[in-house]
């Protein structure tokens, strides 16, 4: 793949991830539970892990959280800290799952990503408010990770079929 094409693809993916992140932040929360969300931007991260590898997936995740936070006005807030740590941890977990669990489909890997995202968020929240008791919240967030992971996993599955290295002629 030529370097120009690579840079252009990464830029487009970052832009798409930012748009998904901001759209999700604008949508009203269907459940009155803070922290429970779909994780639409995860679609881009997982696609990137499948098609481009670890390094661009990491860069796009970090850039996406920082730029979205700047646009939403939450930069360096509690939300931002939870978002960026959750994003990085879930990206690493999904990459490991992709390398180790060869038979798992994007749906299973996406569920692991959602669960580890919630776990990292809780860990940051526990550190910031200095209360281990917030882990009482873990069962709710783990159960909520299932539908979120399945929905984004199905989206990644469709996306991988419609948009991959061959179609992009990378």
């Amino acid at each position: 793949m030529s370097k120009t094409k690579y840079i252009a693809i990464c830029g487009v993916l970052t832009a798409a991830a930012i748009v998904l992140h901001i759209i999700e932040a604008m949508l009203p929360n269907p459940l009155p539970i803070p922290g429970v969300k779909l994780g639409l931007a995860n679609i881009i991260t997982l696609w990137c892990i499948y098609q481009l590898g670890l390094k661009p997936a990491f860069t796009i995740t970090v850039l996406r959280t920082i730029v979205s936070a700047l646009l939403l006005g939450t930069f360096l807030s509690m939300n931002f800290l939870m978002s960026i740590s959750g994003g990085i941890v879930s990206m690493l977990v999904m990459y490991l799952a992709y390398r180790l669990l060869r038979k798992a489909s994007p749906i299973g890997i996406s569920i692991l990503g959602a669960a580890s995202h919630n776990m990292a968020q809780l860990a940051v929240a526990a550190l910031v408010i200095d209360q281990i008791a917030i882990f009482y919240y873990l069962p709710i967030l783990f159960v909520a990770a299932l539908p979120a992971g399945i929905i984004t996993g199905i989206a990644v599955k469709i996306l991988l079929k419609r948009l991959n290295k061959q179609i992009l002629q990378l």
């Binding site: 038979k103 798992a104 489909s105």
Partner: peptide, 16 residues
């Protein structure tokens, strides 16, 4: 969904 996906779902539910 593959068999490993089902295992992942069961593990997440078990941890919860």
């Amino acid at each position: 969904m593959s068999r490993q996906d089902i295992y992942i779902i069961i593990i997440v539910l078990a941890i919860a």
